[in-house]
Design a protein around this nucleic acid. Structure first.
Lengths: 329, 329
DNA sequence: CGGTGTAGCTAGCCCGTGCAAGCGGCATCG
DNA sequence: CGATGCCGCTTGCACGGGCTAGCTACACCG
């Protein structure tokens, strides 16, 4: 690993302030402020002169001061709580995809995106962020096992939306795909293909995953397979998933259909199957969840339940801003 | 997609301020400030009373005001410039992995992470961020085609480090793996396996990729293959990579070794190969770059050049803070 | 009386905005 | 006939946003 360095530097940390700029322009500070804000109340000629001068001197208004004055933060916190998977590194492409779309949507509205990975040690992580003034609102990706904390925060602050499951009675606004239905579809798909010895691969304790399992079990029940279906609760990391799946497959030969809680898990399962010489989908069919981009690029291409995450991200952001605008939703 | 909502809410937006808290405690605002900061100059009894009162009322100092006063932002910008790949969505697991490690390292130092995806339209994107006061420094992931802009910003501000290539004469501090060496290793690996009709898969214009290609070509030259080696410049998205690779393979049968600029590209190549009935690594050997987690979970597991990104991320953050502390590096 | 331990005063940090003043000319009023 | 006021438009003044820190003020003690 290299550590390159630039040539010797002479930093030009001359950071001119509004005060100086005003003197330079021969106007008052307020005129500078209004000019840069493009207020038409300032004479066009004066305004342009100020703007030009600012450009020349590389002046940028200090946004921290600006935000303080305007009592806003112009930033949204995006949080990935990692309660149920203490060692899950969010290298999960799912997070990244969501993050990318959120970044796009927020950038469009001129808001910054403050990223937090949280390993909830106390119950105050969300309240701390929301109460700190650093953000105007927050988007939580996945309830993890923190529904109680999220509900509490939702009661005290406005400007909080959650990607994840919608459980009856929850206090917080959430957006997510219909996980139960997704699980149902996955189950029916496997059963329609003649698979009978089914396995749910994933930890059902986070609500989204629990609902996927629930839908899956429902499909099994419809087919009279309620008794034979198995669940293997595993971590979401690909490595852990791979190990657990391998072990399980060795101990339980005969499985012919797998529904994985996420595509990453599914890919690990594919590998474990390949190593055991089991054909996919001939011997064992696999269905994933998310439709991350890589899903189409495994061999064979992974069957997966698609979530339209761009739509989801946009909806999250829409609802967040509606809350911030005072709408009650 | 559901849009769940919580029960009707009565927000407790009572956000008490330092002023009120001071009155409640019967002390001055400064005493509250110092108490919460844990300054021992305040009598322990008074201090604890204030702290307790703050806790009870859920008071959290406004960090925006705090930062303004302390002339800092307590945040680092992390930027992914997307100059060369206008449509590359950073769902690339590589970015996410890096981002995760950076988030960890910054969180450890109590800094926030401001995420920006930038499609450089003007030349001011970096200067705008650095000059806005919203961040104390920035980490740029990949030079893309913006080396000039980055150099310019590095000259004006302190607190800027870049993940990517180290090219002679650059003005900015950069951290990255030895891409030339990586390419060299990849090339030698393929050649040692008896492969002779080689292909570099990736757009060599961003410096990191260019250096990977350079090392690869060097290995080819060593083996006298300089003339037969091919380069296929493609986009980094898996979809685009897949299409381009498929087309190329059809038009150029006989390729027996592929070095892909990234693992995502490599995975797409694997799929294209599999669909053409070409065995990996029997007919065609493939080497990727990055060692993202999924690389081990393809079938067959992908050979890849590993970058220790955690070490890289830590180094980036270390060097950034050294710059901020005034060290000249 | 000088020293020590507490706590308050006040001046900012950098910017935005309500209020009011000044512009020159013309109508109204005493 | 001279004084006042008001026009619409532009700009400046002064204050405030929540917080910190240097200096000051006040007890109390030896």
């Amino acid at each position: 690993m290299h550590r390159g360095h630039g040539a010797g530097k002479a930093y030009t940390i001359s950071k001119i302030g509004m005060q100086e700029l005003a003197e330079l322009a021969g106007v008052s500070v307020s005129t500078v402020s209004r000019s840069l804000a493009g207020k038409t109340i300032i004479n066009a000629k004066t305004r342009e002169r100020v703007v030009e001068l600012a450009r020349v001197h590389g002046f940028k208004p200090n946004q921290v001061a600006q935000n303080l004055r305007l009592r806003r933060a112009q930033a949204i916190g995006v949080i990935i709580p990692m309660g149920h998977e203490i060692d899950q590194h969010p290298s999960d492409p799912f997070f990244m995809l969501m993050l990318g779309y959120l970044a796009d949507a927020l950038t469009d509205r001129n808001f910054d995106l403050l990223l937090s990975r949280v390993i909830p040690a106390d119950d105050a992580w969300l309240d701390n962020l929301l109460g700190s003034g650093r953000v105007d609102g927050a988007i939580v990706i996945g309830q993890s096992d923190q529904s109680v904390v999220i509900d509490a925060a939702a009661r005290q602050h406005r400007g909080l939306v959650v990607w994840g499951a919608h459980v009856p009675g929850q206090q917080h606004v959430s957006v997510g795909s219909d996980n139960i239905r997704g699980g149902l579809i996955a189950g029916r798909h496997l059963i329609a293909r003649g698979k009978r010895r089914l396995l749910f691969l994933g930890n059902p304790s986070p609500p989204e995953f629990g609902q996927r399992q629930q839908g899956f079990l429902q499909a099994c029940a419809e087919a009279g397979l309620a008794d034979s279906v198995r669940t293997l609760p595993i971590h979401l990391t690909s490595e852990a998933a791979y190990c657990a799946a391998s072990e399980f497959l060795d101990a339980n030969p005969g499985i012919d259909g797998i529904f994985a809680a996420s595509d990453v898990v599914a890919m690990s399962a594919l590998r474990a199957l390949a190593e055991r010489g089991l054909a996919v989908p001939g011997d064992v069919a696999v269905v994933g969840y998310d439709d991350i981009m890589l899903a189409a690029h495994t061999s064979p291409p992974l069957t997966t339940i698609r979530q339209d995450m761009q739509a989801g991200a946009n909806l999250l952001v829409d609802m967040l801003f509606r809350q911030l605008d005072g709408e009650d939703c």
